[in-house]
Amino acid sequence: MIRVNHRNMDFYEGMTLKSLIKDLKYSFPTLMVKVNGELVPKGKYEETRIRDGDDINIIHPIAGG
């Protein structure tokens, strides 16, 4: 189990930040992502492996529309 934006989510082996964002269909172009409080730049999503128990924040920094 991992936490994404303070909600529980199932964990699977081989999960990366990139695959997680894809699974969630988070296609908004400017995301701010933190894994266990550490900011992860966009270029590192693919290489960032998610571990069981991780606490992830994927913030869409917009109140637009």
């Binding site: 934006n5 303070h6 909600r7 988070y26 908004f28 924040n57 994927i58 913030i59 869409h60 917009i62 109140a63 637009g64 529309g65």
Partner: peptide
């Protein structure tokens, strides 16, 4: 929606979970 568009803050980011948070937004 030109007054407030809060769907990402609320539904996606879960940044404004309480009634007070939502009211502030």
């Amino acid at each position: 929606h030109d007054e407030a568009w809060l769907i990402f803050m609320d539904m996606v980011n879960n940044q404004i979970p309480t009634f007070e948070d939502k009211a502030e937004a």
